[in-house]
Design a protein around this nucleic acid. Structure first.
Lengths: 249, 249
DNA sequence: GCAAAAGTGTTTTACGTACACCCATGC
DNA sequence: GCATGGGTGTACGTAAAACACTTTTGC
């Protein structure tokens, strides 16, 4: 018996130099980056130009460094790819099947982030040969990255059904049509424009600008900005712009 | 340059024998076990009988083994403590601050589980000297376990506000009063009994039994069982027994 | 003048909420 | 017969949903 309490070795036990029975594993971050081009929601993937799995696509990822928290690592990796900081980001889930990575046991912490696709298009690091993909045209992905994306998307839908986080995907100025397209795209579902707009106005989150966007219609549509004070107060609150009936399946 | 694409070494790179730049870390599970005694919700902690942090309390935890998935590890650890299998369990979040464990860098994946406190009281492994604690009387906890509990509780509240998972905490037969107490306890909030009961009946999740529970009242109150078929179909759906107004803060 | 998108209102329905009384029983 | 917890019903208000027409302007 190794201790007074009949506790198996694989439980927490302090040893003079590290835990006795813990197997050490590589710990990675994989980042699911969502963007929105005004028409549909898109996902940023990087191209895998080396073997194995050459010519497949991959989430942007990397290993957690020695003195780095998980959030810091996720932030760093997103910045490497997009040049962005201060982006909305959320931990989704950890993936840790023993054989998920054929090379060695690796635990991967998945984050999703929501970025403004237009504003940062040119800041994208070309080192990774990134491309934006439609959700319905995703390519073959390495490892369990397809499942990660699926899980991240479900989480996004879940969260966005109750909290107004999808605003993070829009430019500073946006039209209601864009927002409408965004919600329809995320949920793959037709919405009633009139009810949507009314709910939207009721939130008090929008500030109408004087300028109009004139590219898509003759009449032109007003630009809006987000009321940031109100937004910050409400991200944690329940604000659903989706019909309540069939939120999740 | 180590490769064709100008990719830093801390990104995924296949090397003949493992990843070049990944620091290996211990990967642990910590398990937040909720139970309900008919009156209030409780949390299962184990006593830390050895130094450092002797006389503090701790979540039940352990390390992920070499060929074990995270879910399997969480299942195993719960079984070690409670003897239970087939329990409702959910991954909450990973905690990975660099200094969260003073002995060595350890990533901890937190799960919460919902168990029937009565049924399994006697199956508890005494090796760990476990005790049930009220949420408002939690003792001092090691490391970041206090924060883990806080996060798990928030997740439980979030989830249970929308999905009928709290049934997992009840015995096979239970009274409406117990369920009512449970919801009030989880949210620390007074509810209207009449509205609660009506919503409950509307769900169609309950099957009234012929027997009554007679301990707490002279009239006696009917036992109910969960309609398991309907329950399974609904765990993933939106069914809220909470007032919708002030669900989350 | 007409096509194309923008923008706005009303009616109906359903759900949540507030609220109060009778029932069965053990003592 | 009364105290205790068990169990049920109704009226009201608000919010969601269904539904259609007018406006603007570039061509």
């Amino acid at each position: 018996m190794s201790n007074d309490y009949n506790i198996p070795d694989d439980l927490y036990l302090y040893m003079p130099s590290g835990y006795s029975s813990a197997q050490r594993m590589a710990v990675a971050i994989d980042s699911v980056v969502f963007g929105f081009d005004g028409e549909e929601i898109r996902l940023l993937l990087i191209h895998r130009g080396f073997k194995p799995e050459k010519n497949k696509w991959s989430l942007m990822g990397g290993f957690v460094q020695e003195k780095e928290s998980l959030d810091d690592a996720a932030t760093r990796i997103l910045k490497q790819l997009t040049g962005l900081e201060g982006v909305y980001m959320e931990q989704v889930q950890v993936f840790g099947e023993p054989d998920r990575d054929p090379l060695e046991r690796t635990i991967s912490v998945v984050y999703f982030s929501l970025i403004d696709i237009e504003k940062y298009k040119k800041q994208l690091s070309e080192d990774y040969r990134p491309e934006w993909f439609s959700l319905d045209q995703l390519p073959g992905l390495i490892f369990d990255h397809g499942k990660m994306i699926q899980t991240a998307l479900e989480r996004l839908r879940y969260k966005a059904a109750l909290h107004p986080i999808l605003f993070e995907l829009l430019r500073e100025k946006f039209t209601i049509r864009e927002l409408f397209n965004l919600y329809q795209g995320v949920y793959g579902k037709e919405l009633d424009k009139r009810n949507f707009v009314r709910k939207l106005n009721d939130t008090g989150l929008l500030i109408r600008q004087k300028e109009k966007e004139t590219g898509t219609s003759k009449k032109g549509s007003f630009y809006y900005k987000l009321n940031k004070r109100k937004y910050r107060a409400n991200v944690k609150a329940f604000i659903s712009l989706m019909p309540s009936r069939d939120l999740l399946r």
